[in-house]
């Protein structure tokens, strides 16, 4: 990845900022950074349907908007369905000659809560219907941040949140992170990928592939949230990188059902490197960390074997 920086970075990317300055995300919010890069890759001809959550709130306090592209927010659990309606509306209006023919991508977006919990049904419906030029992006910061860091089904095992606090009788979140990418893959859609706010070029490349696949496509973007993870804001990029380098959050894509690992990691770092320093994990014991290490290794190996069998 780093070799990209040997050249002048702004030349490698769309310079238009369609998510403008003046948005009110916290200092060091890598979810906002991920949105910025997703928009760079998507370009101009899109319509965004955004679920309720941090990115919606920080960007749209009436009468202000941080969006330079068409954008709609309706409710928390329905971005998949709203984006379906947008896709269907644009399609039929073009077919009936009421608006000019042009490829416009309908992009649904939401946080992990909006995607893996309350909006899962609406998203599943949307993916199943096979809308063309349809992309859904989950910005996963691993909790309901907008409402004050409550757990979601995407919160990792062991993380303390305000509704999964660590305590005498609790390790914090006691369920394993829901594998949302696998659920998307099960819909048999042409493109699914995981990405991370610390790898903007990889993220942008995947957005472009997702769009080129024709859709529906699903991207699951680990988006580091310093506020909710209880890390200093300047370490937002570092922790995303550690998530990938430890195998906690593997980067891969699934094109027409074929898995391919997309980050070159010769040897995984121990999960301890990732867990330590994050306030949400500070209570974990060595035994807890061992349990997490075993699980991460097992899941990572599964992906590696899928990668190997799919890529001969």
């Amino acid at each position: 990845m780093i070799d990209k920086y040997a050249v002048f970075v702004p030349n490698l990317t769309n310079r238009a900022e369609n998510f403008t300055s003046g948005h009110r995300a916290c200092q060091g919010c890598a979810e906002a950074l991920a949105v910025r890069h997703v928009l760079k890759a998507l370009g101009h001809d899109i319509v965004i349907s955004n679920a309720t959550g941090c990115m919606e709130i920080v960007s749209s306090p009436l009468p202000l908007t941080a969006w330079n592209v068409p954008w709609i927010h309706v409710t928390f659990e329905n971005a998949g369905a709203v984006a379906s309606g947008v896709a269907a509306g644009l399609k039929v209006l073009m077919r009936k000659g009421k608006i000019p023919e042009k490829r416009i991508v309908s992009v649904g977006m939401g946080g992990d809560g909006a995607t893996t919990d309350i909006g899962l049904q609406a998203l599943s419906g949307a993916l199943e219907r096979m809308h063309k030029d349809f992309l859904y992006v989950c910005f996963d910061n691993e909790a309901y941040m907008n409402t004050g860091i409550q757990r979601s089904s995407s919160t990792p095992y062991g993380a303390a949140t305000t509704t999964s606090p660590a305590g005498k009788d609790s390790i914090g979140q006691h369920t394993w992170k829901k594998n949302m990418a696998a659920i998307a893959v099960a819909h048999d859609i042409p493109y699914v990928a995981t990405a991370c706010s610390s790898y903007p070029f990889d993220l942008q490349a995947k957005v472009i592939k997702a769009v080129e696949s024709g859709g529906p496509a699903y991207l699951h973007v680990l988006s580091v949230c310093p506020t909710g993870w209880r890390i200093p804001s300047h370490l937002a990029i570092k922790y995303g990188r550690l998530a990938v380098e430890t195998g906690v959050f593997p980067l891969y894509e699934v094109q027409d059902g074929k898995y391919r690992m997309t980050a070159d990691i010769p040897k995984l770092r121990p999960v301890r490197d990732y867990l330590s320093g994050q306030g949400r994990f500070r209570h974990l014991t060595d035994t807890d960390i061992d349990i997490i290490q075993k699980r991460v290794t097992k899941e990572y190996d599964k992906l590696i074997s899928l990668h190997k069998s799919n890529n001969g």
């Binding site: 403008t20 300055s21 003046g22 202000l64 908007t65 330079n68």
Partner: peptide, 26 residues
């Protein structure tokens, strides 16, 4: 915000100045 009157709002509170959040200096 506090200077807006009912008549100043677009129907449905649509914002038709894209990216006007730049007036907000963080």
């Amino acid at each position: 915000m506090e200077e807006y009157r009912v008549e100043d709002l677009n129907p449905g509170c649509v914002i038709d100045e894209p990216g006007n959040a730049v007036v907000y200096h963080t």
